[in-house]
Design a protein around this nucleic acid. Structure first.
Lengths: 135, 135
DNA sequence: ATAATTGCAAATGCTTTGCTTGTGA
DNA sequence: TCACAAGCAAAGCATTTGCAATTAT
């Protein structure tokens, strides 16, 4: 059983064949697929799953905090399974490749900035866009 | 003449009545209007300006680095005139209000993170989402 | 003069939804 | 059993675009 499927059980999300399949594929994904790509991977195993179901399922998983949605530049939403520890993203503007990173210092400073402005931080988005340095 | 209109002159952007009007409204805006809101403000002065022209113009201004586009949560793009000094945004998740802030420390750390990963930072996005702390 | 710009409406691309049929607990 | 989910096609929403008419330089 995939890790996402387990989370569904815990959260009382009803499991259908389609959802199990999407859960499995998202659990195993090492990248950040958009809905089209996800549907492509799903279809490779079960052609009958409609893209509407993929849309409904990623939304469901996202609302249950089982997967995370990202709106990187490019128009289409991309997803990844919710990580155990938070991380941010650096996007290679040439290749589209996404590198994950964490930086405690920045996290801390964000909270400080928010507090100083009179706010409690409930969410944040940090995306770095860069070009590879040739060595 | 509005500050955006001046930049257009400098960059050789052809100035039409519509563009002058949009330039003026964006120059004076103290918030981050979306295209609909911008069109509403433009229409209050000249009803004949179409929303297609507003779309074309914000795109043109953005590509000329005269205004900045933001994709905050909510689906529609929002714009502000390019500031002299860079800043980031904190969005009040309850009211939608946007507070601008700068933090040199965070900026520096971002560059460091990118470099450490083998990248040159060409752009970045930092958005904080928070709730007001009652005092 | 003439290449660029506008307005309009139609087209686009991603995402959501109504409805009927199918199905998990 | 039966409330919920899936499939399909149609609808929605923000944004873009083709084309004929208009305009800035």
């Amino acid at each position: 059983m995939s890790s996402i499927e387990e989370k569904c059980k815990i959260k009382g999300v009803r499991l259908t064949d389609q959802r199990k399949l999407i859960a499995k594929i998202m659990s195993e994904a090492k990248d950040h697929p958009d809905v089209d790509e996800l549907h492509r991977r799903v279809s490779a195993i079960d052609k009958k799953v409609s893209i509407a179901t993929v849309y409904r399922t990623v939304k469901l998983f996202e609302e249950a905090s089982i997967i995370d949605k990202h709106d990187f530049k490019g128009g289409k939403a991309r997803y990844e399974k919710s990580p155990d520890e938070h991380h941010d993203h650096l996007i290679d503007v040439n290749s589209g490749e996404i590198i994950e990173f964490t930086n405690e210092e920045i996290e801390k400073l964000q909270k400080q900035v928010a507090r100083k402005l009179g706010y409690k931080l409930v969410d944040h988005k940090l995306e770095l866009y860069g070009t590879k340095i040739k060595d």
